[in-house]
């Protein structure tokens, strides 16, 4: 095990965060604050509470997930795509390092960064609403699992993409709609029955529902199913990455 290599990849990626501080940390804080001002305070005050939770409070878990998902994907995909783009990836290929170690370094850094952003958003939210977390340990579990799963997913996108357009297309065209339609801003129960069924095919619903349960003990689907779904997604990502490494798909000529 080349621990030194994992360490430098991790540090290098974290350093990149520090260098692009505004983009990586300040911007999610600002956008979250805007959501709270608009939906939480301005509009939210005229919306009745959902399942006994005030609207401003209700959207906290969904908003956190929105940032977490997009940040995890963009961090991890960019981290591995950029060396491919500049060509400096030759060094990683020629180093005494296994694919697994590369993965741990890049995905570990992206997930850590997302986790930090998640905490910052929750902290920001606590300035706008009175935040009480019913099950902190469960919340942490959901948070960590989501960061790892979606960083892995981002890593796959970064390996697969061979231009900047492909790098952007999945986060923009797939993830954002899934999060918005995944119950970030509403309860699935508020939808007509047909759309409720359709919504259940959206994996993000389970993430947000489980995460929300850890705060308020209210959820759209049972928390066990939520947990199972995120583990399934994690497993799928691991299998895909494993296959890519084994076959060298888009990695090695």
């Amino acid at each position: 095990m080349n621990l030194q290599a994992i360490k430098v990849i991790f540090q290098y990626e974290m350093l990149r965060t520090w260098d692009t501080l505004f983009q990586s940390i300040v911007s999610p804080v600002i956008s979250t604050s805007l959501y709270f001002i608009v939906f939480g305070s301005a509009i939210g005050s005229r919306i009745q509470s959902i399942d006994g939770v005030s609207y401003g409070l209700f959207i906290v878990p969904g908003l956190t997930m929105l940032s977490l998902l997009t940040q995890s994907i963009s961090n991890a995909s960019f981290g591995i795509f950029f060396p491919k783009f500049t060509g400096s990836i030759y060094e990683i290929h020629s180093a005494p390092i296994s694919f697994f170690e590369i993965l741990v370094g890049y995905v570990g850094a992206a997930a850590t960064k997302s986790l930090i952003i998640g905490f910052i958003i929750l902290l920001t939210a606590s300035f706008f609403v009175d935040l009480n977390i019913a099950h902190p340990l469960w919340m942490l579990t959901f948070l960590i699992l989501t960061c790892i799963s979606f960083s892995l997913f981002g890593f796959i996108i970064g390996l697969w993409a061979n231009d900047f357009e492909k790098l952007q297309v999945i986060p923009l065209l797939v993830i954002t709609p899934l999060v918005f339609l995944g119950g970030s801003f509403y309860s699935v129960n508020m939808l007509p029955p047909f759309w409720q069924t359709v919504t259940l095919f959206n994996p993000v619903v389970y993430l947000i529902s489980g995460f929300r349960w850890s705060f308020f003990e209210v959820s759209d689907v049972s928390v066990g199913i939520s947990l199972a779904m995120i583990l399934v997604f994690l497993t799928i990502c691991i299998v895909i990455v494993g296959w890519m490494f084994k076959t060298g798909y888009r990695i090695k000529q």
Partner: peptide, 26 residues
């Protein structure tokens, strides 16, 4: 290996990049 093309990152410093290389090789 010194590759033929000037394949380097863009935003890191000289010092960081050589430290990174050394670490990659364990």
């Amino acid at each position: 290996l010194v590759p033929q093309e000037l394949t380097l990152g863009a935003f890191d410093t000289v010092w960081n990049t050589i430290q990174f290389s050394r670490g990659l090789f364990g």
